[in-house]
Simulated scan of single mutants.
Amino acid sequence: MVSVDAKKKELVGAEPGYKNGGREWEPKDGPVRVGTHDFPDPAVPYGVYDVGANTGWVSVGSDGDTAAFAVETLRRWWFGVGKVRYPKSKRLLVCADAGGSNGYRLRLRLRKRELAQLATETGLSITVCHFPPGTSKWNRIEHRLFAHITMNWRGRPLTSHEVVIELIGATTTRAGLTVHAEADTNSYPRKIKISDAEMAMVTRQIKPYAFHGEWNYTIRPAKQTTTV
């Protein structure tokens, strides 16, 4: 089982950087000075937290929290770690909130199409369980991964994407948490429209559950057709 979500966008800028919440010990009368007004380059971290292994995978993008970016992070986790750790697995349970790139509403067709493609690509049946609106903080990634990342870089100006990746990757806990972090430099266009015909094909792969099928559903790999 994995828990997924996007961490809030972080302001990234060259020296001296921007204010980052929290406190850190510094020499007396020697506070770190930061910038105030500029056009910062945001970092967009999206994480996958493996609940059983207590490990995290975070892709740091700069192109916005889109459905394609979210599913690409899940793809990278599976081929980079998941497939090796669980070689006999045929199913994957994904817990997500109900907003942003993780949304479940019909208007967010792109996410379901991307997940359907991932299911076919990996051969996995991907079961998605969305937390109802207003309950996203119950998602385990929030307090088992993101909270520790925030504590690890508290009070430190994030002066580049490399610094963001380094600090995320250095996050550990006494319980044994380890985190892999990497940059995702791909571009993910917004406002991609999925036609009714294409969505009808995707819907064939989706099996909603009896209890709130809009929140809980399984996306199965597409059946491969062969020609003679």
Rank of each mutant, 00 (worst) to 15 (best):
A43I: 07
T218M: 02
K191S: 12
T66W: 08
I194T: 05
T127L: 03
R144F: 10
E15Y: 14
V94A: 06
S195N: 00
K137E: 12
Y86K: 09
S3D: 13
V94P: 00
S62D: 12
R156V: 07
L110N: 00
G22M: 02
W57G: 07
T127F: 04
F146V: 05
K7M: 14
Q117C: 13
K83A: 15
P40G: 08
T178W: 02
W77F: 13
M151Y: 13
K207E: 15
W153A: 01
K112S: 11
G13C: 13
A181P: 01
K7C: 04
T66D: 04
W25T: 11
V34P: 02
A147P: 01
A67W: 03
Q224A: 15
A98F: 04
T225N: 11
E26Y: 09
L110K: 08
E198L: 12
L106R: 15
E72H: 15
W25S: 06
P221D: 08
A200N: 10
S101L: 07
I126R: 00
G176V: 08
G169Q: 04
A53N: 12
G169F: 09
W57C: 10
K28P: 00
G82R: 06
K83G: 06
S59W: 01
G82Y: 03
V71M: 03
L92G: 03
V4T: 07
A43V: 07
T55G: 05
L11C: 08
Q117H: 15
A119F: 04
A53G: 07
D29R: 09
E214I: 12
H148A: 06
R75F: 03
M201W: 02
Y104H: 15
K90P: 03
V2M: 00
N20T: 13
V163F: 02
V179C: 05
Y188D: 01
K191Q: 09
L108P: 00
H143G: 07
A183W: 01
D5Y: 08
A222E: 10
G100W: 07
W78I: 10
A170P: 01
L93C: 03
Q205M: 08
G100Q: 04
G103R: 03
T172L: 00
N152P: 02
A210W: 02
R113L: 14
G176K: 05
L158R: 03
W77N: 08
E24R: 11
V164M: 07
F39G: 04
A96F: 03
V34E: 04
Q117Y: 11
L93F: 13
N152I: 00
A70H: 04
T172C: 09
D65E: 14
G169S: 10
W153D: 06
S3A: 14
H130W: 09
